[in-house]
Amino acid sequence: MTLDDLRVFVAVCRAGNLSAVARDLGCTQSAVSQHVKRLEKETGIRLLERHPRGVAPTPAGRVLQAAAADGIAGLDSALRSVGELARGEAGSVRVTTGATTVRHFMAEAVVAFRSRHPKVTLEFRTETSSHDCFAALASNTVDLAWITLGRPVRGIEQRPVTELPWVLAVRSDDPLADRSHVQVADLAHIRHIRLPENSSSRAHLDTAFARLGIHVTSDTSVADWDTAILLAELGLGHAIVPALPGRQDRNGPHPLRLLPIPDLPKLSVGWAVRRWDALSPLARAFADTVTATP
């Protein structure tokens, strides 16, 4: 029994005539008959009744026709979907990252990707650490993870996209606000708003502090970079955060300054995947779009 046997059989049941199907398929009536005979031999029962003006399915034939028609329709739909995926026309892209990443790193890329692939579903899943992003990749629940890059992780490939310098976020009325930049020695005297405990960015910063011999005090911690900046704007402390794309000194009720800290090593961010060569064309296209967008 082959898929062609079933396709021909369903066509014969619908047309009620072997010769009509043969004409549609561009083959002989004998070839059409052979498809039906193979099915009857394998099932061990007659599937068609011959009449003077054509054929009609037997009760067993109607059962097989209904099942085969449903199966062929489902298979054809799946093959169309597979073709669309191969051509990058439809499907889904599943991305995991931090809470503020899409706003700062992907906003323009999402718009550009959507205009090129209007039928594609984009799924964003928020995690609070690179470790959780790696777990999501390992469990195959996401295709891509945007992370703060760090030490190699077995079974995960990491690809840097950009490096972010560090800045100190302070209110414009802060004693440090008039400076063009901040020295690391100045950080020992700030009221530090600490980054999330389990985040790669905090680990990166703590390692830099230890290497430079800097000790900072903190009575406040936050869940993400944006919240740290907001608390600094409200005058609740000083935030050491990456220089996020689009973030600038801000005027308003509580003017904010972002002062470079050139002595701190830059933070590398980018993509993590299980295997680049196993990514779907859509996931690769999305990753490339984000990478190429300034």
Rank of each mutant, 00 (worst) to 15 (best):
His181Glu: 15
His181Asn: 10
His181Phe: 13
His181Gly: 03
Gln183Ile: 00
Val184Gly: 01
Val184Phe: 07
Val184Thr: 14
Ala185Gln: 13
Asp186Pro: 02
Leu187Gln: 02
Leu187Tyr: 04
Ala188Gln: 14
Ala188Cys: 12
His189Asn: 12
Ile190Arg: 06
Arg191Leu: 04
Arg191Asp: 15
Ile193Tyr: 01
Ile193Glu: 00
Ile193Phe: 03
Arg194His: 09
Leu195Pro: 04
Pro196Glu: 09
Glu197Arg: 14
Glu197Thr: 12
Glu197Asn: 09
Asn198Val: 11
Asn198Ser: 15
Ser199Val: 04
Ser201Phe: 01
Arg202Asn: 11
Arg202Leu: 15
Ala203Gln: 12
His204Arg: 10
His204Trp: 14
Leu205Asp: 04
Leu205Gly: 05
Asp206Thr: 11
Asp206Arg: 06
Asp206His: 04
Asp206Ser: 13
Asp206Trp: 01
Thr207Cys: 12
Thr207Asp: 14
Ala208Phe: 11
Ala208Leu: 07
Ala208Arg: 08
Phe209Tyr: 15
Ala210Asn: 13
Ala210Trp: 03
Ala210Gly: 06
Ala210Glu: 15
Arg211Pro: 00
Arg211Ala: 15
Leu212Ile: 02
Leu212Thr: 00
Leu212Ala: 15
Gly213Ala: 10
Ile214Asn: 08
His215Tyr: 04
His215Leu: 09
His215Ser: 13
Val216Ala: 13
Val216Asp: 02
Val216Pro: 00
Val216His: 02
Thr217Phe: 05
Thr217Met: 04
Thr217Lys: 07
Thr217Tyr: 07
Thr217Ile: 01
Ser218Lys: 05
Thr220Ala: 09
Thr220Glu: 09
Val222Gly: 03
Val222Leu: 10
Ala223Glu: 11
Ala223Arg: 12
Asp224Ile: 01
Trp225Pro: 01
Trp225Leu: 02
Thr227Met: 10
Ala228Pro: 03
Ala228Thr: 07
Ile229Glu: 09
Ile229Lys: 02
Leu231Cys: 04
Leu231Asn: 01
Ala232Ile: 05
Glu233Tyr: 00
Glu233Ser: 15
Gly235Pro: 07
Gly235Met: 08
Gly235His: 10
Leu236Val: 00
Gly237Val: 02
His238Thr: 05
His238Ser: 12
His238Cys: 14
Ala239Thr: 03
Ala239Met: 05
Ile240Gln: 02
Leu244Tyr: 03
Pro245Ile: 06
Gly246Met: 03
Arg247Asp: 03
Gln248Gly: 07
Gln248Trp: 04
Gln248Leu: 10
Arg250Ala: 15
Arg250Met: 11
Arg250Ser: 13
Asn251Gly: 14
Asn251Gln: 13
Asn251Val: 08
